[in-house]
Amino acid sequence: MEEALAERLRLQGGRMTFADYMELCLYLPEAGYYQRSEPKLGKNGDFYTSAHIGSFMGGCIAASLDAAARRLTPDGGDVAIVEWGGGDGRLAEAVLSELRDVYPETYARVRFLGAEGSPYHRALQRERLRGHEEKIEGIVEPDDDIVERAFRDSTTLIFANELLDAFPVRRLVRARGEWMELYVEGDPAAGTLREAPGPIGDARLAAWLAAHPVRGKEGQRIEVGLAGLEWLSALGRRLRRGFVLLADYGDVSAELYAPHRMTGTLLAYRKHAADEAWFREPGEQDLTAHVNFEWCAAVAGEAGFGEIGVTTQKSFLVEHGILNKLRNHDGADPFSPEARANRAIRQLLLSDGMSELFKVMTMWKGVDAE
């Protein structure tokens, strides 16, 4: 990692964009955070996702995919399901198990593809999904031809949890009434890296800010997730007919760039602790920023998606029947399966948990509006 960062700085005249830095930290082969062969999720990792709080998120996603499959293929034709960036496969297992147990007619006609960039996570997914082996068409890199064929030739249902927040972001600072880009450069005195402002040198970033102006206070820092927006745009070009469900944490511009967010939303996660020390141990901690769903919806519309909706995770879970999963029990044993299940549902729905911060974005492609 140190060699890669030093080489990138050398090639770019001593400074790089924060997006370049973040991409190396997360995705450098073998050394990047998501490429390392060690746990990132759950108790032994650095953070939890909703997939680690029981199987309920997966069950609700399965209900949504079943409804989409029935709408898109009323004749009962085959359907491809693609999970993008599925990590250890826990969410895919919950989705496929719910389809098998609750929606067997849909399960009978689906084939599953895992689009995952990490060799370590692909291996974990293959092992975890052995119980659905007959349904697995492939667990491959996202740019594999088998994924492209599904997008081109099939009715395809795509879901992803905490994917958009992992795309590299650009960092900006408001200085003298203008936005300056924050670059990463070496700090000889400290022997580490630091941020330094400079002019915006990327025409794409300048054009985006011109079309989507952000007002900020002097000294305020913000993130612009161009890479995630470009992924959404490319997805619209690639997908012929289907349904997309993306769950992540984020909000609209008015909240993300509000005056009380003077340092932005970027955080580093390690061992279940979050801070702003993103130059500490590059490659050994997660870096993530909130998703601007207002901008995502605008890009999705331009990319040809229709019926674009964004709702809180709480509303999504309730709409798709999570309250029906609550179980009666006598309360004598707080560690009984029933008590554990109810606590998991409560954690997913409480406003101080994941329910309001997390959003679920859905969109359709190649289907007439009803």
Rank of each mutant, 00 (worst) to 15 (best):
F112I: 05
L41I: 15
A206S: 15
N328K: 13
L323K: 07
F305Q: 06
S315N: 15
A68T: 07
W84C: 07
R122L: 01
A207Y: 03
A289H: 04
R126E: 14
E370A: 15
A289M: 08
K40E: 10
T312P: 06
T156A: 08
G117A: 14
A196L: 14
D20F: 01
Y27Q: 07
V102E: 05
L26Y: 13
R280L: 14
D145Y: 00
A4T: 14
F335A: 12
D368H: 11
A227S: 13
A277M: 09
K271P: 08
W231L: 05
E133D: 13
A80W: 02
H121D: 14
R128H: 04
D286G: 13
E141R: 13
R70L: 14
I61F: 00
G87I: 12
L72M: 11
G32Y: 03
G87Q: 13
M361H: 06
S55W: 00
G138Q: 07
V360A: 02
P119W: 08
E276G: 09
E105I: 07
R149S: 15
A254H: 09
R149V: 14
F159T: 01
A190L: 14
W295D: 15
S253Y: 00
E223D: 11
R152Q: 14
K365A: 05
L91F: 02
A62P: 01
L113S: 10
Y107V: 00
Q347R: 15
I139D: 09
R261P: 05
G87K: 04
L182F: 11
F167W: 09
L91A: 04
A92G: 03
I81G: 00
G306S: 15
A254T: 12
A94F: 02
L323E: 15
R204G: 04
W231V: 09
V360T: 12
D78W: 06
L205S: 06
V214E: 05
R15S: 08
V244P: 04
V224G: 01
D145I: 11
F47T: 08
K40W: 05
R100S: 01
R149F: 07
A332W: 06
A94D: 14
F112D: 08
M361E: 00
I53C: 11
F151K: 01
K314E: 10
R343G: 03
Y34C: 10
M16A: 11
L326W: 06
R71M: 10
A332N: 12
A175Q: 15
Y257M: 04
A115H: 10
P213V: 07
V367H: 09
K271I: 01
L24C: 07
L357R: 13
L172I: 10
T49H: 09
A115V: 10
R240L: 01
W179P: 11
L246P: 10
